[in-house]
Amino acid sequence: MTSSYRGILWDDLRHGQTFWSSGRTITEHDVSAFSALSGDFNPLHVDDEEGKCSVFGRRIPHGPLGMLFAIGGYDRIGLLEGVVVALLDMNWRFRAPMHIGDTLRTKVTVAALEESKKPDLGKLTMHLQMYNQREEVVQEGEHRFLIRRRTDDEAGP
Rank of each mutant, 00 (worst) to 15 (best):
V83R: 06
F94C: 01
E81Y: 08
R76G: 03
P43R: 13
L128D: 06
K107W: 02
L79K: 03
R134H: 14
E140L: 02
M90H: 06
P119A: 13
Q133C: 01
E50H: 07
S54F: 14
D75H: 07
S3N: 14
K118M: 10
M98K: 05
K118G: 07
M67F: 05
P64N: 12
G16S: 10
V85P: 02
I100W: 03
L88V: 10
G63P: 04
W20C: 03
H143L: 11
V138C: 02
L9V: 12
Q139P: 00
L68D: 08
L87G: 13
P64V: 13
D153H: 12
R76T: 10
D48G: 08
L124H: 04
E142P: 00
A96E: 07
H45D: 05
T106E: 02
G23T: 08
Q133V: 03
R59H: 03
T2Q: 14
D30W: 02
F145V: 10
A33V: 13
H15K: 12
V137F: 00
L80V: 07
L87C: 08
F41T: 11
G51T: 12
G101H: 08
R105Y: 02
R76Q: 13
I77A: 09
N132A: 03
Q133F: 01
T18H: 09
R150P: 11
T27S: 15
I100V: 11
E154Y: 15
K52I: 11
P97C: 10
N132L: 00
L79A: 10
V84W: 11
M126I: 12
Q129G: 00
